[in-house]
């Protein structure tokens, strides 16, 4: 790791101020993605801005038909939150499968969302659930927020502060893990929401998380595993590596979609 300066602001305003003054500074919350990258010397921030002291970014609350999850809420907290389990059990169950126990004890929803790792789990959930990502400046629908692999609509120095998730009628998630890294090789999150059926795929897309419109239409017409069984995503849109070719991933997307529908009930 290269050395850097360390800041620990106590408020969003202070954090934003530090980040604005130094475009090479990077925010850190749980650090579950940033620190491994720093250890491999893959990037070299001038400063690390630790958000963990900002109390206003924590916690889960229900506001009417919407769950509001603070950006610094840890995966373990999401997995075990009575509010989340009651409102969106699939989201709690998903959180329980992120990384390993130690990642769940440190990693945060805001960090995962802001990073938009193509094999991360939350982006698929938020896209399928039609969530809104709140930052220190604005509110962005998930459809506009996730812009491809490791890319989001966030501007330099802009911080995710909370996630607003409309509570769906039903939702489910299934993923096939990469046998070595345990990250999703193909994951599918399905949701039946007030705004319609939405299906999002993570782990497989050559350009990160994406919505699978053909499956959405099929499930809108017939909410059953059979409805998606015959739908195959185009392998040319998917990535491949030694553990999973694009063709295999395309197959897995269909299998995981079926299982996600079963999981949703």
């Amino acid at each position: 790791m290269y050395d850097f300066a360390y800041h620990k602001p106590a408020s969003v305003a202070d954090a934003v101020k530090i980040l604005a003054a130094d475009p090479e500074a990077r925010p850190i919350s749980g650090g579950m993605t940033l620190l491994p990258a720093l250890k491999l010397r893959l990037n070299r921030p001038s400063a690390v801005v630790d958000l963990s002291g900002i109390a206003e970014l924590r916690g889960v609350t229900r506001k009417g038909d919407t769950l509001v999850i603070g950006a610094l809420t840890k995966h373990y907290e999401v997995a075990t939150s009575a509010e989340v389990k009651a409102a969106i059990p699939a989201l709690a169950a998903m959180a329980h499968t992120i990384g390993d126990t130690q990642v769940r004890n440190r990693g945060t929803m805001g960090g995962s969302v802001a990073n938009n790792d193509p094999s991360a789990d939350y982006p698929a959930a938020l896209l399928a659930l039609g969530a809104t990502i709140e930052t220190d400046k604005r509110q962005l629908p998930a459809d506009e927020f996730f812009n491809g692999m490791f890319t989001t609509a966030l501007e330099v120095g802009e911080l995710v502060t909370a996630i607003h998730i409309p509570i769906p009628e039903k939702a489910g998630y299934a993923k096939m893990r990469n046998p070595a890294s345990r990250y999703a090789m193909a994951g599918v999150f399905v949701a039946k929401t007030a705004a319609g059926v939405r299906v999002a795929v993570n782990g497989a897309g050559a350009n990160g998380v994406f919505r699978e419109k053909a499956m959405e239409a099929a499930l809108a017409a017939n909410w059953s595993a059979d409805a998606v069984a015959g739908i195959k995503v185009d392998p040319s849109l998917l990535n491949g590596d030694i553990h999973g070719s694009a063709e295999y991933r395309a197959h897995l997307v269909t299998v995981m979609a079926k299982r996600a529908v079963v999981d949703a009930g």
Partner: peptide
């Protein structure tokens, strides 16, 4: 069932960490 050290034809080790080598 799990483990393989995989080299590409140019001699680069593709399974060079626990991220890619299945323990």
């Amino acid at each position: 069932l799990l483990e393989a050290a995989v080299y590409d034809a140019s001699g680069q080790l593709l399974s060079g960490s626990f991220m890619d080598y299945t323990m």
